Amino acid sequence: MSEGVSSSQERGLLQEALDRVADACWVRLPCERVTVMLADGEGEQAVLGIAAWRGQLGEEAANARVRSGMSVAGGVYASGRVRRVADGEHDSSPVPTRGEGGSFICMPLPLDGRVLGVINVRRRAGEPAFSEVDETLLDCLALFAGKSLQAAQLAFLVRSEFAQRALQGEGGPEAVSAFVHGEAQPAQVARMLAKSFYREMKAAGFGNNQIVGAAGEIIDQLSASLRKHGQRMVRSRS
């Protein structure tokens, strides 16, 4: 197995996870449209772009970029709080809707205390409005979405020779087989990789501060990969 894994393979794993999220929302919450938006950047500088969708979506909407705090999606991303509206045409909230009628829910997409983006579901005007039960279901689906994207990140990471050595050293062939077949928990794999990483850094003569700094860099790189994916998706359609 090669040490390097191409960025196209990483994008493929993330896109598969995003498509599964969109499908789950589409099937379980009957609606006119589902969009999954990921953030590129941090805090107030973050920009949201659509990374997956189901239903009819025009080219302009598919390529739209939304800044943190601006519009409904940007406001939900910035606040981390869900927004459910019975009818967009008669919504009197301070942040206006995009001019479409009908009911919609905009839900934060969370992972370990962070917000990766938002999930939007919309019904056309005249159809029953989304209920509190629908909102609770979408909240559960959003939690599933965050973990699915995390699993895609780990699936990409585990293809490296370092990850293979770490899994073999910590859990043997059974650990590798469990991960390949989707039976291992992402948190379990992450702990195995962290232990192996620590031992190899210590064996190489690095001090504690240097190891902590390297670990922080890994976390930053993994977090950035999801945000950059949204930007790449937009560029690929332009």
Results as ranks from 00 to 15, higher is better:
55 G>P: 06
189 V>G: 02
231 Q>R: 14
24 A>V: 09
105 I>Y: 01
136 T>I: 10
12 G>P: 09
188 Q>P: 08
93 S>E: 08
105 I>P: 00
188 Q>D: 12
217 E>L: 15
211 I>G: 02
149 L>I: 05
134 D>V: 00
35 T>M: 06
68 S>M: 04
49 G>E: 04
114 R>N: 02
101 G>T: 05
8 S>I: 13
76 V>F: 06
57 L>Y: 03
105 I>W: 01
104 F>Y: 15
194 A>T: 15
39 A>Q: 03
113 G>V: 01
84 R>E: 01
146 G>N: 00
168 Q>T: 13
175 A>E: 05
131 S>P: 10
50 I>V: 10
87 D>P: 09
11 R>N: 13
215 A>D: 04
142 A>N: 04
23 D>T: 12
144 F>P: 08
222 L>G: 00
189 V>Q: 01
204 A>Y: 13
134 D>A: 01
102 G>K: 04
22 A>H: 06
124 R>V: 10
178 A>R: 15
165 R>G: 07
78 A>W: 10
55 G>D: 02
120 N>Q: 15
115 V>D: 02
10 E>Q: 15
64 A>P: 09
72 V>H: 09
22 A>D: 03
155 A>Y: 05
62 A>T: 06
19 D>P: 07
74 G>P: 07
105 I>D: 01
220 D>I: 08
157 L>A: 11
175 A>S: 09
67 R>Y: 07
225 S>P: 10
145 A>L: 04
7 S>M: 12
208 N>E: 14
108 P>Y: 02
4 G>Y: 10
12 G>K: 11
39 A>K: 04
185 Q>F: 05
211 I>K: 07
117 G>V: 00
147 K>N: 04
234 V>T: 13
189 V>H: 02
143 L>H: 09
128 P>K: 13
173 P>T: 05
70 M>D: 15
234 V>P: 08
151 A>G: 07
56 Q>E: 15
51 A>S: 14
18 L>E: 01
176 V>H: 10
132 E>T: 11
120 N>C: 10
94 P>G: 03
213 G>S: 15
192 M>F: 15
40 D>Q: 11
4 G>Q: 12
73 A>Q: 11
25 C>F: 03
225 S>F: 06
230 G>H: 03
102 G>P: 07
195 K>Q: 15
232 R>E: 06
165 R>Y: 07
56 Q>C: 10
53 W>H: 12
158 V>P: 05
211 I>C: 02
175 A>G: 06
167 L>A: 05
226 L>D: 00
225 S>I: 08
76 V>L: 05
59 E>D: 10
90 H>E: 10
200 E>Q: 14
53 W>S: 12
126 G>D: 04
116 L>V: 00
85 V>E: 02
180 V>L: 15
146 G>A: 03
132 E>N: 09
114 R>W: 00
30 P>W: 01
89 E>N: 14
15 Q>L: 12
18 L>G: 01
10 E>D: 12
26 W>A: 06
157 L>I: 10
28 R>A: 03
11 R>E: 13
148 S>Y: 05
